[in-house]
C-alpha cells in the first residue's frame, strides 16, 4: 500500500520554511505542466472538453459520468449522495502513490487530474470526494478533510499518515468517514484504526479567496490553496 511509504508532506504541516521553499519549486513545475486555460463558457461541459484534450476520451467519459452522477443525486438525501460519490470514486480510481503517478514525493491532484490519471493517493481521493459532495449540494460546514494517524492492518507495527473525508450530519454529530482504502462509509466510532490529527475545509477567507481566483501568487505556496486555485482554473468553482 502506498500509504505505508514514508510521506514527508504530512509531516511538514507545521510551517517549515525549507519545505515551503521546496513546495514553491514543485508548484512552479506544476504550473508549467498545467497549461489548461480557463473553461470556455459556451460548451456544455468545459471540464470534459479539457479532460479530452489533456488526457484523452477515457478521462472525458469519466468526467461526463461524474457530472451525470452529481446531477442524478443532487435531490437525494445526504447519505445517498455520500454513497454514490464514494462508490464512484473508489470504484474508478486506482490507489497509487504520487511518486508513481506524478513522479513527485507528494502531489495534491484536482478532480480533473485524478480522473485524467485514473489513479491517485489518499488526499487526491479525499479532495475529489469533497468537491463531489459540494457539487451535490452539501454545505462546506458539514465536510472536513482530516489528517489522520492510521494504524494499518492487524499485527502491522507500521503506522501511516493518511487523509480521509469526514461528514458531519450536525456540528455535534459523530462524523461518517469516506476513506480511499475502505470501501464502506463508516461512522467514526467504528474506525478505531484512525486517529484524527487536523481537519480543514475551504471555509476561512484565505481558502475561499483561492477558490475564487487563481491570480493570487501566494495561493501556490499552500498545497490546499494551490489545489483550490487550480480547480478554479479547470472550471470548478467551489465558492
Amino acid at each position: 500500500m502506498a500509504t505505508q511509504a514514508h510521506r514527508p508532506s504530512a509531516r511538514s504541516l507545521p510551517c517549515s520554511l525549507a519545505l515551503r521553499a521546496g513546495w514553491l519549486f514543485c508548484f512552479v513545475a506544476i504550473s508549467c505542466l498545467c497549461v489548461a486555460g480557463p473553461a470556455n463558457a459556451h460548451t456544455p461541459d468545459p471540464m470534459a472538453k479539457l479532460a479530452s484534450k489533456q488526457y484523452g476520451e477515457a478521462a472525458a467519459a469519466t468526467v461526463r459520468a461524474w457530472r451525470a452522477m452529481i446531477e442524478e443525486t443532487r435531490a437525494l438525501p445526504d447519505h445517498i449522495k455520500l454513497r454514490h460519490a464514494n462508490d464512484f470514486i473508489n470504484g474508478r480510481i486506482r490507489f497509487e502513490s504520487d511518486l508513481a503517478v506524478w513522479r513527485q514525493a507528494d502531489y495534491w491532484a484536482t478532480p480533473l487530474e485524478l480522473f485524467g490519471k485514473q489513479a491517485g493517493d489518499c488526499e487526491d481521493f479525499a479532495i475529489t470526494k469533497y468537491v463531489t459532495l459540494r457539487a451535490q449540494g452539501i454545505p462546506a460546514e458539514k465536510l472536513r478533510l482530516v489528517y489522520v494517524h492510521a494504524r494499518i492492518g492487524a499485527g502491522n507495527p507500521g503506522q501511516a499518515h493518511h487523509m480521509v473525508l469526514s461528514y458531519y450530519e450536525t456540528p455535534a454529530a459523530e462524523p461518517l468517514i469516506l476513506d480511499s482504502l475502505v470501501g464502506e462509509i463508516l461512522p467514526a466510532g467504528r474506525r478505531s484504526d484512525l486517529f484524527p490529527i487536523f481537519s480543514f475545509n475551504h471555509e476561512g477567507p484565505r481558502a475561499r479567496e483561492a477558490a475564487r481566483s487563481s491570480a493570487d501568487a501566494t495561493a501556490r505556496l499552500s498545497r490546499w490553496r494551490g489545489v483550490l486555485a487550480r480547480m478554479r482554473g479547470e472550471g470548478l468553482d467551489l465558492s
Binding site: R144, V146, S166, G189, F195, P196, F200, E203, R206
Partner: peptide, 9 residues
C-alpha cells in the same frame, strides 16, 4: 486566519 479544532472526531 481560520482553522478547525476537533476533539477526536
Amino acid at each position: 486566519g481560520v482553522a478547525h479544532v476537533t476533539d477526536k472526531w
